[in-house]
Structures are given as structure tokens and as C-alpha cells.
Computed example of a mutant assay.
Amino acid sequence: MGSGLFYGFDHVNLTQLLNSFLLPMLVSPILAVLLGIVLFKLFHFLRLDNKQLNKDCICGPVFKPIVQVEQTHSLGSNLVQQPNLTSTMYIDTQENCQNLVTPIHLSISKSLDRLHIGSAIAICFARGLNDTPKLVALLIAAKMLDQSHAVVFIAIIMGVGGLLFARKVAQTMSQRITQIDHASGLVANLITASLVLFASKFGLPVSTTHVAVGAIAGVGASSKRIDWSALRNVLLSWVVTLPFAAGIAWLSMWVFL
């Protein structure tokens, strides 16, 4: 916008800007908040909240002591031994599960950790699908790189930037806005990946970070553990960066042209 406004309002398609950019950016985090509230309540209703997850072990079926069973055949009958297997499955603590002789012993927290990794991969894919084209478009429009080289270049730079400067942002999102546990983190990840992928399907550029913050805020509000002051600071940063970016772009056009 800032670069276009340097040449005047006639060079900015305000209708396209509103419908294709501003509305998706505004609606997507609000929708993420609503989904976060609803899905977290659903997890709580299904007893998948953190209290239930303190019982970390699924075990069963349970083998009882070997019993003798009489078998009858043409030559008479005899006694055979076989295990007495019940079909009951238990959700309990690790300590109690270890005291049972069971063929199945599954840790809920470790399984959720694997799901978290899968949901994180989904977010990375969604972000690459939605964010990379925005930057590729700038490079192509500036005639700096072709499409293939631009994608590779941006992937490398985004990876390096994530390794160098992502820690503070991650701490804000995972610890300051709200304290995320297994259930809330998984809900927020799945909402973020789904909404960004859905927007990408229709060619709508949205902010993965905005959607993720919306999902985290919805989960935090539903669990009543949200830090409103931290969330307010994040929202203020969103409001400030847009006019600042436009102003810097306008000023850069004035200096270099």
C-alpha cells in the first residue's frame, strides 16, 4: 500500500485490498478465537482436558490368573490351562497400570506429543502454502528472481530467521498469552493449520501468526487462563505495524526514486 500510495490513490485498488486482504486478515483470527472456545469446551466435555490427562496410561485387556478348563472329546475329557482374559480397558496412572498384567500399555502424554509434532508439521506446511507466495510475488514483481528460485531463496531465509529470532515470539505465544497444556496446544494447532489451509485453497492471504494467536486466545479464554495484558500488547503490535510498514515503504520510494 505504501509503495502504491507514493504514486497516488489511483495506483491502489482499494476494493481489491479490502475484499482480498483486509477482510481475511480481520476475520481469520476472530474465527480462530470462536473455534478455540468451542473446541476446547468440547475437549473438556469429552474429559480430554488436563485433569483427565493426569491419568496418563491406557492399559488392558487384563489377564487374570490361569484357569483350568475341561475339554470333552471322543476319547473322553481332559483339563487344559488357558488364560482368563477380560475385555476391560483402563485409563489410570502409570503406577497403577504397571501393577496390572496387560498386553497393551499406552502413554497418553507420549501419544499426544506425537500428535503435537504432526500438528506442528501441518502448520509449517500451511504457512509455506500461504506465506511464501506473498514474498515470491514481491520478488517476481521486482524482477529479482523467477518463481522457482524465489521459492528456494525464501525457504532458506525463513528457516534461518526462525532459528535465529523465533524464541521470544514462541515464548510469548506459548507462555505469556496463556499457559498451554496438551489439550489446548493440540486444539490451537489444529485450528491454525485448518484455517490457513482453507484460506489458501481460495487464494486468500492470511497471517499464520494472527490465526495462531486467535486460536490460543480462544483456548485461553475458554479455560479462563488468559493474560489479557499480554494479548493486548500483541494486538497493539498488529495495529502499529501496518501503518509503520506503509510509511516506511512510502519513505523508501521517496528516497530511492
Rank of each mutant, 00 (worst) to 15 (best):
84 N>Y: 12
15 T>C: 08
21 F>M: 09
56 D>Q: 03
80 V>G: 00
62 V>A: 08
96 N>G: 02
2 G>K: 07
29 P>M: 02
73 H>D: 13
43 F>D: 05
21 F>P: 00
4 G>N: 03
71 Q>W: 06
44 H>Q: 15
85 L>R: 13
31 L>S: 07
42 L>N: 02
54 N>V: 13
41 K>L: 10
85 L>W: 14
68 Q>L: 15
98 Q>R: 05
14 L>T: 10
63 F>C: 12
22 L>P: 00
50 N>R: 14
72 T>E: 09
98 Q>W: 04
26 L>S: 11
54 N>M: 15
91 I>K: 08
33 V>E: 05
66 I>A: 12
42 L>C: 03
66 I>Q: 12
9 F>Q: 11
100 L>H: 07
13 N>C: 05
41 K>M: 12
82 Q>S: 14
50 N>F: 13
88 T>Y: 15
35 L>E: 07
106 L>Q: 09
94 Q>R: 10
11 H>D: 13
7 Y>V: 00
49 D>V: 08
2 G>N: 02
29 P>V: 00
100 L>P: 02
80 V>K: 09
89 M>Y: 07
81 Q>F: 11
66 I>G: 04
98 Q>D: 04
4 G>L: 00
20 S>H: 15
3 S>M: 09
108 I>E: 01
84 N>T: 02
16 Q>H: 14
63 F>D: 11
90 Y>M: 07
56 D>F: 02
22 L>C: 01
51 K>S: 12
77 S>Y: 14
5 L>N: 00
65 P>G: 08
101 V>H: 05
68 Q>I: 09
81 Q>A: 09
12 V>L: 05
43 F>E: 09
